[in-house]
Simulated assay, not measured.
Amino acid sequence: MSRRGTAEKRTAKSDPIFRNRLVNMVVNRIMKDGKKSLAYQILYRAVKKIQQKTETNPLLVLRQAIRRVTPNIGVKNKT
Score class of each variant (00 low, 15 high):
M1W: 00
R4V: 02
R4T: 05
G5E: 09
G5L: 09
G5C: 03
G5N: 07
A7G: 09
A7C: 09
E8K: 12
E8Q: 14
K9R: 07
K9D: 07
R10N: 07
R10G: 01
T11W: 00
K13A: 15
K13H: 10
S14N: 03
S14P: 01
D15N: 07
P16K: 06
F18T: 15
F18H: 13
R19N: 13
N20S: 14
R21N: 10
L22A: 06
L22K: 06
L22S: 05
V23R: 05
V23I: 06
N24P: 02
M25L: 13
M25F: 03
M25G: 05
V26Q: 09
V26E: 07
V27F: 10
V27H: 04
N28D: 15
N28K: 15
R29K: 13
R29Y: 06
R29M: 10
M31Q: 15
M31H: 07
K32Q: 12
K32E: 14
K32S: 12
G34E: 05
G34K: 08
K35W: 05
K35M: 06
K36Q: 04
S37R: 03
S37W: 02
S37K: 04
L38C: 06
L38R: 13
A39E: 04
Y40N: 02
Y40S: 03
Y40Q: 05
I42P: 03
I42R: 02
L43T: 04
L43H: 01
R45F: 06
R45Y: 06
R45H: 10
A46M: 11
V47A: 14
V47G: 13
V47L: 15
K48Y: 05
K48L: 05
K48Q: 07
K48C: 01
K48M: 03
K49Y: 04
K49C: 06
I50V: 15
I50G: 04
I50A: 07
I50Y: 02
Q51S: 13
K53W: 03
T54L: 15
T54C: 14
T54Q: 15
T54K: 15
T54A: 15
E55S: 08
T56I: 03
T56K: 15
N57C: 07
N57D: 15
N57E: 14
P58C: 02
P58I: 04
P58L: 01
P58W: 01
L59G: 02
L59A: 11
L60V: 12
V61R: 13
L62G: 05
L62E: 01
R63T: 07
R63E: 01
Q64S: 10
A65I: 15
A65S: 13
I66M: 11
I66G: 03
R67G: 00
R67L: 08
R67D: 05
R67Q: 09
R68G: 01
R68F: 09
V69Y: 01
V69W: 00
T70M: 11
T70I: 14
T70E: 01
P71R: 08
N72A: 01
I73G: 00
G74D: 10
G74K: 12
G74N: 06
V75T: 10
V75G: 01
K76I: 13
K76S: 09
K76F: 12
N77Y: 00
K78N: 00
K78H: 00
T79Q: 00
T79P: 03
T79E: 01
